[in-house]
Write a protein that binds this DNA or RNA. Structure first.
Length: 592
RNA sequence: GGUCUGGUAGCUCAGUUGGAUAGAGCAACAGCCUUCUAAGCUGUGGGUCAUUGGUUCGAAUCCAAUCCAGAUCACCA
C-alpha cells in the first residue's frame, strides 16, 4: 500500500478513535507537502473541521499526536500551518522501502485486476498510407494495453482493417485507368503509398470532371453525382458486392500491396495485434441482432420497412439500424462485431481507440448493445482522442496536407542520428548498434511527444519545428537512464544494501518519495485510460534524478553507507524509468 | 438550432474528488564541464486561469449566462 493511502487510512482511524465520527478514508485529502514547509505529506483539515466542531488547529493537534503515538513506525513528527497538517514520515520507512524494492526488476507490476480486455486500435482504411493521426491512435492503444497488463489484466490487441467500400474502389478505378500495369515492385514504392497515390489521382481526376460538368451548367451537387469516374467507382463497388471475380482479384491484389506496406510501418513503430479482423468478413455481421431486437421490442419498424431504435429517452435521437431495402448500416456490423469479440475471447471489457469525431456513434453503439443484452456491453468503452492538427488546421488526405507516418518516422531517425553524431558519445558502437540507438531515440521522441498530452485533447503539430530532444521529452528521460546505467556499470557487484542511517538528504528523500508513488501513478493511468500521467511522472522522476546527480556523488559518496543508499536509489530509478517508458512503448538505451 | 468537447505564460502543455504564493518544457537572458555522460544543472524575466455573476472558510477546478474554437446530430463509412 502506498504511503498516501496509508496516511488516509490511519487518519480516518484517528478521527474515529478521537471523535467517534466515521469519515471514509477516500474523503480525506492527503497531498505531497509543498517544498517550503516541513514534512512529506499533508492532511487537509478543512474538510472535516466543521463536522468535528473544533478549530483546525485543535483537530490537527489531536490527530497529529494520535498518529505520532499510535503509528510511530510511519509518523515521526507533525506541524500545523493554517489548517494543513504536515506529516514527517519516519526516515526508516523510506529505507525499508528501498531495501524491499531496489532490486525488484518488476517494480510497478501489481496484479489487482483479472479482467479480459480487448483493445481495438489502429483500424486503418486500405486506400492510403498511415498518417500522424494514426500514430497517435497506435501509440495510445499500445500503451493502454501495456498499462492494463501491468495491473494484471489479460489484454487482446485487435485491429479492424477497413478493406472494403467506396474508398478502396476509388483507388482501384484510378489504378485501372492510369497505372498501365505498374506495381509497387516495378516502381520501387512501398505498397500502401503506391495505392494511396492512386487515391489521390482519383480525386484529382474527379475534381477535374466535376469542374468540367459545372462549366457545362450542372449544379455542383449534380456534377459531383454525375462525374464519370465517380459513377465508375460506384459501379465497381456494386460489382464487388455481387462477387464479380475480376473486381475481387484486383481488390485482393491492391489490398495485399497495402498490407505489406502497413506491416512494415507497424513493425517500425512497434504496433502489434493478437487478432486482426477484416471488414470484408465482418460487414455483414449484426443482421440477426436486428431481428432479435425487433422481436424483443428494442427496435421498431417504420412503415417503409426500415428499422430504428428510439434513444430519445437517453437524450439522443432515433437511429437507423437497417435500411428500408434490408441492407445494413455501419452500426449494424459494429453490433455484430462486439458480439463476435465476446464469443471468441470471452472478454469483460471492450475498448475502442477511435477519434473523438465518433463520440456520438459510440454512445449509440453502447446503448444499443446494452439494450440488446450483449454480454460485456457495460464494459464497452470508447477511448476517444482528439485530432492531431497542423497550425493551418485539419489534415486532409485529399488535399495532400497530411503528415505521412513513414516520412515522419524517417525524419525522426535522421535527426536522432544527427544529434547523436554532434555529441560524439557513442565511440565503439557498431553500425547495427547505432541504427538501433537512432531508432530508440527517434521513436522515443515521437511517442513521448504524442503520449504526454491528455488523449482527449486536440493537439497541434507543427511540421516546421522538429520535435524537441531537450526538456520534457523522451530523449531527456532516455538520457537520464543511460546516465544511471553508466554509473551502475562502474559499480557493479558492490554492496547494494543500505545500512540504517540518519535522515535522508532532501534530494535523496525527494527521489525516494517519488519512486514510492510509481505504482499509484500506474493505477491512476489505468483508471483514467490515460498514459499522459505516466509520461509526466517519468519526466519529473528523471528531472529529480538529474538534480540529485548534479548535487550528490553516487560512486564517490561521502561514506560507504551513503554510497550504498544512493546506489539503491539509482538502481530503482533506472528500473522505474525503464518500466514506465515501456508502458509508453518506448525503449531506453544503456548508452547514448 | 440540439448535444458534446475545449479556452491556463509569446509557443506546446500540466494542474487529482474545490485547498497553502497557479506549475513544467520550449523560446529569451545570465551562470556551471580537471570531479559518476552538459541530450544535463542553477538562476532571471514572463499570468485579468476567455468574460461576467453565483455557491463557501477557500474556485483555474463546482453552478449559470455570454464570447471564441472544434466535433457531431446522414437510409455515408
Amino acid at each position: 500500500m502506498s504511503v498516501s493511502f496509508e496516511l488516509k487510512s490511519i487518519t480516518a482511524t484517528a478521527i474515529k478513535e478521537l471523535y467517534q465520527v466515521d469519515i471514509s478514508s477516500e474523503n480525506i485529502q492527503v497531498n505531497e507537502t509543498k517544498p517550503e514547509f516541513e514534512g512529506d505529506y499533508t492532511v487537509v483539515l478543512f474538510a472535516f473541521v466543521k463536522q468535528l466542531k473544533q478549530s483546525p488547529d485543535a483537530v490537527g493537534n489531536a490527530i497529529g499526536n494520535y498518529l505520532k503515538t499510535h503509528f510511530s513506525n510511519l509518523v515521526k513528527d507533525f506541524n500545523i500551518i493554517k489548517g494543513f497538517l504536515n506529516i514527517v514520515v519516519q526516515g526508516g520507512f523510506w529505507l525499508d522501502f528501498l531495501n524491499e524494492n531496489a532490486t525488484n526488476t518488476n517494480y510497478g507490476f501489481r496484479p489487482v485486476k483479472q479482467d479480459k480486455v480487448m483493445i481495438e486500435y489502429s483500424s486503418p482504411n486500405t486506400n492510403k498510407p498511415l498518417h500522424l493521426g494514426h500514430l497517435r491512435n497506435n501509440f495510445l492503444g499500445w500503451s493502454i494495453a501495456e498499462i492494463l497488463k501491468e495491473q494484471g489484466n489479460t489484454v487482446y490487441k485487435t485491429c479492424v482493417v477497413n478493406d472494403r467500400g467506396i474508398h478502396i474502389c476509388k483507388s482501384m478505378i484510378a489504378w485501372e485507368k492510369f497505372a498501365e500495369g505498374k506495381t509497387p515492385e516495378t516502381e520501387g514504392v512501398k505498397g500502401d503509398h503506391f495505392v494511396g497515390d492512386y487515391y489521390v489521382k482519383f480525386n484529382d481526376e474527379y475534381k477535374k470532371q466535376v469542374k468540367e460538368l459545372e462549366e457545362k451548367g450542372l449544379s455542383t451537387e449534380q456534377a459531383e453525382k454525375d462525374a464519370p469516374i465517380m459513377v465508375e467507382a460506384q459501379d465497381m463497388l456494386l460489382k464487388w458486392e455481387q462477387g464479380d471475380q475480376k473486381v475481387h482479384d484486383l481488390w485482393a491484389t491492391m489490398n495485399d500491396w497495402v498490407y505489406k506496406g502497413f506491416d512494415e510501418t507497424y513493425k517500425e513503430i512497434g504496433s502489434d495485434f493478437d487478432k486482426t479482423y477484416y471488414e470484408h468478413n465482418t460487414y455483414l455481421l449484426g443482421k440477426d441482432w436486428v431481428d432479435k431486437g425487433l422481436q424483443s421490442g428494442v427496435f421498431f419498424a417504420k412503415e417503409d420497412g426500415s428499422v430504428w431504435i428510439d434513444l430519445t429517452e437517453d437524450g439522443l435521437d432515433q437511429k437507423l439500424v437497417r435500411r428500408k431495402d434490408g441492407t445494413s448500416v455501419y452500426i449494424t456490423q459494429d453490433i455484430g462485431l462486439a458480439d463476435l469479440k465476446v464469443q471468441e475471447f470471452g472478454i469483460d471489457r471492450n475498448i475502442y481507440v477511435v477519434g473523438d469525431e465518433q463520440n456520438y456513434h459510440f454512445k449509440v453503439l453502447k446503448l444499443i448493445c446494452q439494450k440488446l443484452g450483449i454480454p460485456s456491453a457495460d464494459g464497452m468503452y470508447h477511448l476517444s482522442y482528439g485530432m492531431v492538427e497542423l497550425p493551418t488546421g485539419k489534415m486532409k488526405s485529399r488535399e495532400g496536407t497530411v503528415v505521412d507516418a513513414d516520412d515522419l518516422v524517417a525524419g525522426m531517425l535522421r535527426i536522432a542520428a544527427e544529434k547523436t553524431a554532434e555529441l560524439g558519445k557513442v565511440d565503439g558502437f557498431e553500425a547495427s548498434e547505432l541504427d538501433k540507438l537512432y531508432n530508440i531515440i527517434g521513436l522515443g521522441a515521437l511517442k513521448f511527444f504524442l503520449l504526454r498530452v491528455d488523449p482527449k485533447k486536440r493537439m497541434i503539430f507543427n511540421p516546421e519545428e522538429s520535435i524537441d530532444f531537450h526538456g520534457f521529452t523522451g530523449p531527456f528521460v532516455q538520457y537520464t537512464h543511460a546516465r544511471i546505467k553508466s554509473i551502475l556499470r562502474k559499480t557493479e557487484g558492490e554492496n547494494n544494501n543500505a545500512a540504517i542511517s540518519d535522515d535522508l538528504l532532501p534530494l535523496e528523500k525527494k527521489l525516494t518519495v517519488s519512486l514510492e508513488q510509481y505504482p499509484t501513478v500506474i493505477s491512476e493511468s489505468a483508471q483514467a485510460m490515460d498514459p499522459s500521467g505516466i509520461a509526466i511522472y517519468v519526466f519529473n522522476l528523471a528531472k529529480t534524478f538529474n538534480q540529485f546527480y548534479a548535487e550528490l556523488s553516487i560512486a564517490n559518496a561521502e561514506s560507504p553507507e551513503k554510497k550504498a543508499l544512493r546506489l539503491q536509489i539509482a538502481t530503482l530509478t533506472a528500473t522505474t524509468i525503464q518500466r514506465a517508458m515501456h508502458l509508453l512503448g518506448i525503449e531506453v538505451p544503456e548508452r547514448m
